[in-house]
């Protein structure tokens, strides 16, 4: 790892000013992703801005939503009373990620900003457009078991690895982004982007900006019927092959409203709006779940090693819906 300059920021403005001024500076929060990337030479910031002294840890009820500060720890969010009560889906998604030690370090902002786990991205001797634009995509014709089936391009077929983000996408959360001059609020689903022609950018955050909070609307009835199903190669401490966040607003056996998002399938948390719309007003039957799942798979495309996802994904969607409905 190269040596670097380390500063502790005491105000938000410190951070955004420094980020604006110095293109080689990077925020460090929990460090669980960034330190790893630096060890491998994938990231080499010359300056680290430690933001842990900022007061961005709060989780609080506001009118119509719950606001979670960007520095709230994954373990804390997962067990926060408001979250457990109103968004058990988020709690479950967080619990299924990483390990308790990592969740004790990882922050909400850092989790959103974590980079793909594509092995080619991590190995600096391999081609990778995301790490080194223009070198090609190592995974495209390489080992791509973990890779995307939705929205990928030849430029990059990586997936976003977060579990938390899948739940937040399903819950219609928003992201609060601050720069030195302004603050903006965007839909969570607009935060991450598809690979497109510039896979080196994972999201829509601009230079000089930082994440300060996420807000989750709570005026809904999804808490009773929601689940996060994560399928992976071992039963814990592993990234998802496929994950599904499913939340249903039910009235007896009827579905008023549905929310569905997937992880492990795209460059961003993947909302399944067609399937959601299909389920609206339908009976909660296995048949309907299967149909919804089939609709969700339209436009899916597999590569050499991830063909199984074309079956595993719809099966997992149907299974998650079944679990959520049965609650």
């Amino acid at each position: 790892m190269i040596n670097f300059n380390y500063v502790q920021a005491s105000t938000q403005k410190n951070v955004t000013d420094t980020l604006m001024k110095d293109g080689t500076a990077q925020i460090i929060a929990g460090g669980t992703n960034l330190v790893d990337l630096m060890k491998r030479g994938v990231a080499a910031p010359q300056k680290l801005i430690d933001i842990n002294n900022l007061s961005l840890k709060n989780i609080e009820q506001q009118k119509g939503f719950v606001r979670i500060g960007a520095l709230a720890l994954n373990s804390v969010v997962a067990e926060n009373e408001l979250v457990v009560q109103k968004f058990p889906l988020l709690s479950k998604a967080l619990q299924s990620g990483a390990s308790q030690q990592l969740r004790n370090m990882a922050t909400v902002g850092g989790n959103m900003m974590q980079r793909t786990r594509c092995s080619y991205f991590y190995d600096t001797t391999m081609p990778c457009n995301k790490r080194n634009p223009g070198t090609g995509c190592g995974a495209l014709k390489g080992y791509n078991r973990m890779h995307a089936i939705f929205g990928a391009t030849e430029n990059c077929i990586a997936v976003h690895p977060s579990d938390m983000c899948v739940a937040l996408a399903a819950l219609n959360a928003s992201v609060i982004i601050s720069s030195s001059r302004s603050e903006r609020k965007i839909a969570f689903t607009d935060f991450h982007k598809l690979a497109g022609t510039n896979p080196e950018k994972d999201n829509t955050l601009q230079r000089g900006e930082m994440i300060t909070a996420v807000e989750i609307p709570d005026a809904n009835n999804f808490a009773q019927h929601s689940t996060y199903l994560k399928i992976r190669d071992r039963s814990s401490y592993a990234f998802a092959l496929i994950s599904v966040a499913a939340a249903l607003d039910m009235n007896g056996g009827k579905i008023n409203n549905a929310r569905l998002a997937m992880g492990g399938v795209a460059h961003k948390p993947w909302r399944l709006t067609t399937a959601e719309n299909f389920l609206k007003g339908k009976a909660a039957t296995e048949e309907n779940f299967k149909q919804a799942a089939a609709l969700a798979m339209k436009d899916a495309k597999a590569y050499r090693h991830n063909n199984f996802k074309l079956t595993l994904a719809p099966n997992s969607i149907a299974e998650a819906l079944k679990i959520a409905a049965a609650m």
Binding site: Y6, V35, M105
Partner: peptide
Amino acid sequence: VLSCLSLAIM
């Protein structure tokens, strides 16, 4: 926490 991903300076 994991000490291998914690910078001592922090």
